[in-house]
Amino acid sequence: MRKTVSDKRFPTPVRVIVRHHQENIIATAWDAVEFLRRWPARRGLAYRRALQHCLDALDGIRSAKKAWASFTAAVREEGLLA
């Protein structure tokens, strides 16, 4: 069976809060990339690292666990972690 983009599951989903207390559940590297493309905060180093690590996970270059760690760090840095 061939793996798809959605198979790049994070170890645990990340709950993110954005405008008006809207909650998003980010469960895969693909979900994270989609969220990062609409990123509602400063696009600093942590953001750029998270985006690259998530794209790398989709390409099979990096683990979903590493992408998850980078994404979580970026969300936490900007105060978006629920």
Rank of each mutant, 00 (worst) to 15 (best):
E77P: 04
K65C: 11
A64M: 12
D59E: 13
E23G: 05
R76N: 10
F10I: 07
I17H: 08
F10Q: 14
C54Y: 03
V16S: 09
G79Y: 12
Y47E: 08
V75S: 02
C54R: 00
V18K: 13
E34C: 11
Q22T: 11
W68C: 01
F10N: 07
A46Q: 03
S70W: 02
V18E: 10
H53L: 13
R62H: 05
A73Q: 06
N24I: 09
K66I: 13
H21A: 13
E34Y: 10
R2I: 11
A82V: 13
A74F: 12
W68P: 00
K3P: 04
A74G: 07
K65H: 13
R43E: 10
H53M: 13
N24M: 15
E23M: 07
A46M: 11
A57E: 00
N24Q: 06
R76C: 05
V33N: 03
F10A: 01
T72E: 10
V5Y: 12
A82S: 10
R62Y: 07
A82R: 15
R76G: 08
K8R: 07
L55N: 01
R15H: 11
S6R: 03
G60F: 13
E77A: 04
Q22F: 13
L58Q: 04
G79K: 10
P40N: 04
L51V: 05
A41T: 04
P11Y: 15
A29T: 14
P40H: 11
C54P: 05
I26M: 09
R37T: 00
A73N: 07
V16T: 12
A64R: 07
H20S: 10
W39I: 08
V14S: 05
L36C: 01
V5Q: 03
L51R: 01
A27G: 10
A27N: 07
V14A: 03
E78R: 09
A57M: 01
